[in-house]
């Protein structure tokens, strides 16, 4: 992630959309049901949309809590470049719902972005657990001629910030458990395959 101050001067915002412009972006809304048109919190949705639009992302695919596994799979496979969240609590909620996929999502380079409320927030930098970006919400400044809200892309500087302790702890505890599970799955897979093949070898003449 480039220096946030430079981004403000040049008006450039990059949360990964440029790096992977072919892939679509998602948004996570805790109010969403499986139906894409059933969202209770329109203000949250608008905030996320504005923050994403300021980063050059016009179309978002909405996912709700019931679709965490699907969303994680798409982030992991690179079908989605990243996902926007209303706040960090939502990021944690999402990661907690798909603990097995946290590593793969981050390794796939998926961006988890938070559309924060506070426009005066200065971007914070620092390499940390996870890869969560934040972009400040749209400016309330109004264009004097059109009276329409005037977007100021240069204030939507994203920065890498730490996940909170909960997410970090969850992630780390999960990593260890996950490693054991994967080893067990691999060993049992080999065992099952071997059993079938040995059975086949012993009874080949009878079976054929």
């Amino acid at each position: 992630m480039s220096d946030a101050t430079d981004q403000q001067h040049t008006g450039h915002v990059d949360v990964g959309a440029r790096a992977n412009s072919d892939a679509a972006w998602a948004a996570f809304d805790t109010e969403s049901s499986a139906s894409k048109n059933n969202r209770a919190d329109a203000a949250t949705r608008a905030r996320i949309q504005h923050a994403a639009a300021a980063c050059g992302i016009d179309t978002l695919h909405w996912y709700g809590p019931a679709q965490c596994i699907k969303l994680a799979a798409k982030l992991q496979d690179g079908d989605l470049a990243g996902c926007w969240f209303a706040d960090r609590a939502d990021v944690v909620a999402f990661l907690a719902a798909v603990p097995d996929q946290c590593d793969a999502i981050l390794q796939a380079g998926a961006k988890l972005c938070v559309a924060t409320e506070n426009a005066s927030n200065q971007p914070r930098t620092g390499k940390i657990q996870g890869d969560v970006s934040t972009a400040s919400s749209i400016s309330s400044e109004v264009d004097s001629t059109t009276k329409a809200p005037m977007a100021r892309p240069n204030i939507y500087a994203p920065a890498t910030i730490p996940l909170d302790d909960l997410a970090a702890g969850l992630h780390s505890a999960h990593q260890s458990k996950r490693r054991h599970q994967v080893i067990a799955a691999a060993v049992l897979s080999f065992f099952a395959v071997s059993c079938v093949l040995v059975f086949l070898a012993v009874f080949w003449e009878t079976l054929k």
Partner: peptide
């Protein structure tokens, strides 16, 4: 015999993977 072997091996693998969270019902 071929079909039964393929189905048996893959079914066992999916059961193991399901048990250990390598695949999820969705």
């Amino acid at each position: 015999l071929g079909a039964a072997t393929a189905i048996l091996i893959l079914t066992l693998l999916f059961i193991i993977w399901l048990e250990y969270g390598c695949v999820a019902v969705d």
